[in-house]
Design a protein around this nucleic acid. Structure first.
Lengths: 122, 122
DNA sequence: CAGTATCCATAGGGATACTG
DNA sequence: CAGTATCCCTATGGATACTG
């Protein structure tokens, strides 16, 4: 059992319905948010690289996800003024702090996924 | 920079589009999935308690979320054959392993949420 | 109490076409 | 190349009513 009282806002009623934590949580745990953060934690990527490496993401969703992550200060967008355009995305310091917590979770899931799916409700 | 090559399936192309990892990831990072797991990590809860403590969740979504988490073996459902019915939900060992990784992430988000929201793209 | 069943609205998200 | 703009569909999820 873990003591949640150390986590602000998690004492009574998990997280208040309209708090900033839920907002950021939704950004981070969004389907494509996690995968983009994961991709960038492995190294900087250009737009076209992200499109390829994050399998299944549409242009619309990639753009939306990146805008949110940039706005939240997790990702930095560097646009070089050349033709054709060259834009690189990378994690900010804040983004690295976040993925430092995200990666262990992802690692555990990736390692146990097959077992979990094949052994429903052991 | 973190080495992702240690995470199975995360080497080329983050996570293959149709893999079990993405499936489990979607269950765990679903809006209500995270909050229910968080609630249960603080202690066992009955259905009605979860409805109250997980602010904003509808009956439909709570039922669906719990079914998924039980099916994945993260949560145990104990139904006592009494009238009125009394059903208790608790984390399984697998569920505790998962939340052990989830809680630090949530803690970080909760602590930084205000800063993140108020300081977009610092 | 602990759900299930049904209806229904809205918005999440895909496909496509277009632009600086 | 790196996006934006539009159309359009379906599936998520809320509200309500009902049941063992």
């Amino acid at each position: 059992m873990v003591d949640l009282s150390s986590v602000p806002g998690v004492t009574r009623g998990i997280l208040p319905a309209q708090c900033n934590s839920r907002l950021v949580l939704d950004h981070v745990t969004s389907t494509w948010g996690v995968l983009v953060l994961l991709a960038l934690s492995a190294g900087d990527h250009r737009w076209s690289e992200l499109r390829r490496v994050v399998e299944g993401v549409s242009e619309k969703m990639l753009a939306q996800t990146l805008r949110t992550l940039v706005a939240d200060g997790f990702v930095d967008r560097e646009a070089e003024p050349v033709i054709p355009p060259r834009v690189t995305y990378r994690l900010t310091e804040r983004g690295r702090e976040l993925t430092a917590h995200l990666l262990p979770l992802m690692g555990w899931i990736a390692q146990h996924a097959d077992e979990i799916v094949s052994t429903p409700a052991r």
